[in-house]
Nucleic acid binder design. Sequence first.
DNA 1: TCGCCAATTGACAGCGCTGTCATTTCTGGC
DNA 2: GCCAGAAATGACAGCGCTGTCAATTGGCGA
Lengths: 337, 337
Amino acid sequence: MRVRLEDVARATGVSPKTVSRVLNEEPSVKDSTRKKVLAAMEQMNYRPSPAARGLAGSRSFLIAMLYDNNENPASTYLAEIQDGVLDACDAHRYSMMVSPLRLRGHDPIRRIDALVADHHIDGVIMTPPLTDHAPLLRRLQEHGVPYACISPLHRDEAIGVCMDEQQAAKAVVQHLVELGHKRIGHIVGIANHGASRWRLQGYKDALAAAGLAFDPKLVVQGEFTFGSGVMAARGLFELAKRPTAIFAANDDMAAGVMWAANERGLKVPRDLSVCGFDDTPLATQLWPPLTTVRQPSREMGKLATLQLMDKLRGRGTGLLLQVPYTLQLRESTAKPA
Amino acid sequence: MRVRLEDVARATGVSPKTVSRVLNEEPSVKDSTRKKVLAAMEQMNYRPSPAARGLAGSRSFLIAMLYDNNENPASTYLAEIQDGVLDACDAHRYSMMVSPLRLRGHDPIRRIDALVADHHIDGVIMTPPLTDHAPLLRRLQEHGVPYACISPLHRDEAIGVCMDEQQAAKAVVQHLVELGHKRIGHIVGIANHGASRWRLQGYKDALAAAGLAFDPKLVVQGEFTFGSGVMAARGLFELAKRPTAIFAANDDMAAGVMWAANERGLKVPRDLSVCGFDDTPLATQLWPPLTTVRQPSREMGKLATLQLMDKLRGRGTGLLLQVPYTLQLRESTAKPA
DNA sequence: TCGCCAATTGACAGCGCTGTCATTTCTGGC
DNA sequence: GCCAGAAATGACAGCGCTGTCAATTGGCGA
């Protein structure tokens, strides 16, 4: 029937416990023994039973990816991260559970408790904005469940991955400045999201660096959705002195800006330059294609997971890795008329 | 420490086995006993250990959602389905694993084998185009693992969920006909995908019903991607007699058509009507908003999962459920000039 | 060569549940 | 009121692995 650890032990002439030691990469096994066992495992195509390991031992080889199902950053973003997490899990024989959390209404703490109680989760991958939900993090700590964050707001304590979003935002806006724009609008994302803050700050930095005055009227609150981008853009278009360029804090809102521009008969980029952030598939599906910042989400998911696994093995070197951004200059930005 | 089945048994004054029976909804338990046990479970906040259940019993309470990572229909589609599957899992205390399969290159059969061997998967949710990957289905059957399909090509044997895509496609095209269009182009999806066939057939049906001749030159092969939509549209624009409307087999390609129209200076819908299929978020993020068919993907994911669970409990009534489509008439279609 | 300590290995119980089969408790029919 | 057979319950082993702690082995200085 199924090849069990005991079978491998018998084949190798050692005790089951020793095979178990090899399986778990414990150091106290003589090298020659280890090799023999590994060879037998390979040869017999042995596959440990996660259920048995979970029941007997303290680890479950399961990690959960938590995300917010209400306020989520575009679903393509999460899908990419998920792919990255899966890549890393595959490589380390871990499994992943996806666990959508509805912050509004439902009680996320109970969800965490259930995850821990039911599945003995070994660790958690947190995506924004959950990365900064203090009660959640505290609860995880109480349970002793390690977690890695993707783009957390508070960067000091967390382990995980981030990108220098502030610098990236500064770079896109500088691109607009270099094209000759003087009145540059900005649409902010959901308040308190790290992404919103960093991108706004980068916008300010670029203005400052260029010696342009910061005008609060040019900054409008959005909430990362297409619709909010439309609304925000309409507001900006009503200004006595319309901006000649708009930097939206993500691609969805940038798409909204382009929609509103169309609605008002403004031609992009002739009458208005637009840029976004994230480089979702949407960016190249708009007309004209959107200038934006590429964020390597899949890679980030993978790296965060690897960080988590390092921590699970106690090998944790790391705090917060930083991945590089890439400017994607496309046709939605041009010199002002 | 942890509340165990045994604790519940002691509290209720019955044997552990009886509690187990209640837990597994076995019929041979007296009603009064069942109520007592359930009350105690509730009161003690008992949570069965999936690991122990999996190890001792034959079920793992785990289902896998399989999808093709290369040729996937837009990621938002899969994300929606996944959400639906999770909804259903939650409701029935099942867990879900996501398992991307790279059909090209990697060997999907091995992946299935691994899933079964490692995790004792109870069942599988199949998404297109995997629903029609014969070797895969055969392997699942050999393993005795039940599966439910979402929009399978071969509808006879499969259990799962589908939509009358042919009828839906016919309806959108009829909408174009009613607007007065005579030359209607169609961009087909990846060959052999059910979605491609049904939508093409619906297109033909509508033409026939309207007494319009079918012109093969108006039908161009695409592959469900934005880029292929652009290419296909360019081809159609080169025709001596350009179509006045184009029905793309999905929204991404329709977006491509609109892109290509922009590129060529054609104004939608004045010079060209465009419609798509799926009603992804993209549809309302384009300018003008896209006329399309809404497919309730999330609902379909949920229903397919419920079907699967029915089957797992042997209560399987069902073959293929059919969910209704909805026409989303928006501004990308209008009377021909 | 002997003893001692560290390095390696093994014996054994038990993780929390379910399958199997035995046992007890009800039914209803006579 | 008694018995056959169905309904309901229980006893017990064991799923495949790991934690604990004991036993063995090997290396080295005295």
